[in-house]
Design a protein around this nucleic acid. Sequence first.
DNA 1: CTGTGTGCAAACTCTTTGCATAAGT
DNA 2: ACTTATGCAAAGAGTTTGCACACAG
Lengths: 140, 140
Amino acid sequence: MPHAHEMPIETRLRHSGLRPTRQRVALADLLFAKGDRHLTVEELHEEAVTAGVPVSLATVYNTLHQFTEAGLIRVLAVESSKTYFDTNVSDHHHFFVEGENRVLDIPVSNIAIDNLPEPPEGMEIANVDVIIRLRPCRKD
Amino acid sequence: MPHAHEMPIETRLRHSGLRPTRQRVALADLLFAKGDRHLTVEELHEEAVTAGVPVSLATVYNTLHQFTEAGLIRVLAVESSKTYFDTNVSDHHHFFVEGENRVLDIPVSNIAIDNLPEPPEGMEIANVDVIIRLRPCRKD
DNA sequence: CTGTGTGCAAACTCTTTGCATAAGT
DNA sequence: ACTTATGCAAAGAGTTTGCACACAG
């Protein structure tokens, strides 16, 4: 189920220094209304237009980057052509369905990584991404 | 040290159905001569030109994809703008230095992943990628 | 009103493609 | 000779940017 948010979107935006404009509120609604999502800019833009919010593509790009900097969403590096944005910023990992280019959450409790290696001198770990790539089973 | 290869590059290419042309041999030499590497197309192209092999950018793209299909190298999805190629196709994971955009190998023996989740019905795991993103330590 | 945000179109980066020329076998 | 590869330039996808107009406070 979609997890309840602490405060209304307007307030969350304001706290991030973002004025709650029509477009930003509409995009945030689409992003956060239906639970955790994994979207490309193109997909969100299409949803917005379909939903009767004729936002421009450039604004979707800008907005998603602003949301990312504000920590409301995060970027996923699953394949090197499109950028995917994840509305779940908590610690978790992903399945990626090859061919379909679909991203699925893996609940963090399911994975344990042991023996995390020492980062090189002068570096610290910013974050650990695990991507499990899936393909259809071959039936033998 | 660079690990010894089983057969000369010419032969490896031929076994993959690739004619050992000047450009392909030169690129393979650059890729495999100095141990495991993580390169973008641009970087390899520049190396080749510097080394006196005036190969075109398009050919580097084509060649790296052919090598990838042949299983000689593999693609890394570390960030969604450039494609990185890894000359080490064995099972291992990566550090990614943010800011510098540098990729480093993590010896596989250092990481153990427990409780790999069940893939969804009809899917099987093709491969597991772990990317540990690094940033400079903050000195407090 | 004043300062931000938005939309559009143009620019930019990375990558792929088509076709004539060159190289491999 | 015959086939495949290469190079160039043009096209294509995704993304960013500059500037005039519109909106929020």
